[in-house]
Design a protein around this nucleic acid. Structure first.
Lengths: 370, 370
DNA sequence: ACAATATGCTCCTGATCCGAGCAAAAGAAG
DNA sequence: CTTCTTTTGCTCGGATCAGGAGCATATTGT
């Protein structure tokens, strides 16, 4: 039940620094109710008012709504293949502090323990202002917060150990969370149905429908890499045949170039894609074609009006835009070809997953502050 | 902003005949508020109370909440390849009256005009109680209610002509609406993410996430038949290559059997699929395999926990269950194989689309009655 | 008949929100 | 500098809604 108070907080979170007059118009309340609302939320140490830059227009100047200096905070974390990081994020998305380090080959439980220690240090510094945590991970997260990251060789890693008994604890796949961030603060703001695809070691993604990320029945939605758009003769490590992901990632490039499967497929793939030599360029073009064809299939089926690419998808789009877009257009249903949904690089880049973790945790917190 | 009143109406719509005590517990209000609510909704001619069957338990007996005898109604319509139909549906989904006839080869505008005449007749009978209309059609509907049904040869048919200036007017693809109905009153009740697939002349479907049908940016989501799970050498009428739909419908069976493309692909396909002869049976098995493989891909990507099949999908599942399910299981990501989401026939059968039209129109009406 | 149990109604209270009217703070015009 | 215009903010009264305590009601069980 969204009350006016949560609506106002959501507006301020989405657009920190809105003027109170604009915010009131956005949620459709009069000036009387606004006074009461802002007063109440100020008392609750959720909102504060700050000065605005002079507008130059006539009329009494308004104030800007900003996060309260003693207001609640969220810890946003991400684990990538190379490092982990924790940010302290206030209402509106600003980062107040950060901590992190390289993975250095440590195991999942060790990394979660190190992350948990960092969260404890930050909680000592910020006290109970930190109300919860969101974590982005390169793998799948079950409902009971167990992480499975096969590309890291991690299985049954208990993420809850980072902060047992946290009031708010959300965790999710990095591509899923990056999609959330793109739809709120990135390229996909305003899209009705945004599709985000992210190629790193494998292909993941997510659909954001009307601002809500589809997380699936088990929290494992967005594994578009395991849709059979690829060559039915190629076996995927997941056990199925013809997986799209196996046609667009580093292993696909290695296969095309007759190389051994690379140990670090991301670095390998980036090197191949950006190589000026004809062999690698042709391989990149082939992979870009497979990417474009699959994107078209997803757009046909999901009726997205915008597609954003993250990770190696950005490099592929830059290296072989003609091939990618040609395959994309050719795969679209005819009625879509007049106005194909744009395929654009994601705005937030490598910060997408951690930004998404912050967004989802803040969304959960705002729902609780009802 | 769902108020208690709309919450109660939604509960009664979902479970007509609930006792008022159960309904109050479901929406979490005390008996005092319930009295006030039921009284208000009775005054507004939205709810009435009826007798309940004796429960046998102790305590004061409660009453059943039922639609008001002068309450609002919805006209639910469907157009299929053979006929059109209009039902008058009350709160809770019961059908009070129905009308319809065969298409008999008429064009889209003529059919919509006939449907509109039937709606006018029903409105004369029921007066302003009929507050809106929902229409299920075998094609795509744009935001401005223009219908495109290429399999019928209809283009730019103005559905709004069936009831211009209707207060509530929703229209959608038959497969999309059938998915909605399945998730509310069919096999998929309670599923977190339900995938419904419907094969008639082509393959369509929809995803229902947490009770909400994903309609896409243009209202054209669910065209899973145009995802490239099929043979890349086969050209689909949509202009793309390798469309899944072209691998599982009547045209695919005809191709496998060396027949000409059939004029009535649905009847043709049903005959082939149910044929006891080895040739047709083998073709059906091949098509069932392609269906199972694609379903697995969609389940992988969308993380559905239940799949329902409608139209010819039911026949395929009955004719070649082993092949379909084997391909399905083989295509699932390994972590899903321990507990594959069930693949079941849809409960509502041919009534799915019209039931879904009623559901969506009622949903819109309930939102307006806030 | 009486106890036990579940349900429904009345009345009171508090929270929320809206609108009217007035006050305040800026720019514009003389 | 004064006055007018424009926009915004505050106070106050009224309306709606929701929740709870206490009592009334209708059934089953002994």
């Amino acid at each position: 039940m969204p009350t006016r108070a949560t609506e106002l907080l959501r507006v301020v979170h989405a657009r920190p620094g809105v003027t109170r007059a604009d915010a009131a118009r956005l949620i459709g309340v009069g000036t009387g109710a606004t006074t009461e609302l802002v007063g109440r939320l100020g008392q609750a140490e959720l909102l504060a008012q700050g000065p605005t830059a002079p507008s130059g227009a006539r009329g009494r100047p308004t104030t800007a709504l900003i996060p309260h200096p003693r207001g609640p905070l969220i810890a946003a974390a991400s684990i990538t293949y190379e490092a982990w990081r924790v940010d302290v994020v206030e209402l509106g998305g600003s980062v107040l502090a950060t901590a992190g380090e390289e993975l250095a080959g440590r195991g999942g439980d060790e990394v979660v323990a190190a992350l948990g220690a960092a969260v404890r240090r930050l909680r000592q510094e910020y006290g109970d202002r930190i109300r919860g945590i969101g974590i982005a991970v390169p793998g799948t997260v079950s409902r009971d917060l167990m992480l499975d990251a096969s590309n890291l060789g991690w299985h049954d890693v208990d993420l809850a150990a980072a902060w047992p008994r946290a009031e708010i604890f959300v965790a999710g796949n990095d591509a899923t969370l990056a999609a959330s961030a793109e739809s709120r603060r990135g390229t996909a703001v305003g899209a009705a149905v945004a599709l985000h695809l992210r190629i790193e070691a494998g292909l993941g993604g997510a659909v954001v429908d009307g601002g809500k990320v589809l997380i699936g029945a088990l929290g494992a939605a967005g594994e578009f890499g395991h849709m059979p758009f690829g060559d039915p003769a190629v076996r995927c490590p997941c056990g199925a045949y013809g997986c799209w992901g196996a046609a667009v990632d580093g292993s696909a490039l290695a296969r095309l170039l007759g190389h051994e499967p690379p140990r670090d497929p991301i670095t390998y793939a980036r090197r191949v894609i950006t190589s000026p030599q004809p062999g690698p360029a042709a391989a990149a073009a082939t992979v870009a074609t497979a990417l474009g064809r699959g994107i078209a299939g997803l757009v046909n089926g999901l009726d997205a009006d915008l597609v954003t690419l993250g990770g190696l998808g950005v490099d592929l789009l830059a290296a072989a835009p003609e091939q990618l877009m040609a395959a994309y257009r050719a795969g679209l249903m005819s009625f879509r070809r007049a106005a194909p949904p744009p395929v654009l690089p994601a705005l937030l880049g490598d910060d997408g997953p951690i930004a998404g973790a912050a967004e989802e945790a803040w969304t959960a917190l705002l729902a609780r502050l009802a």
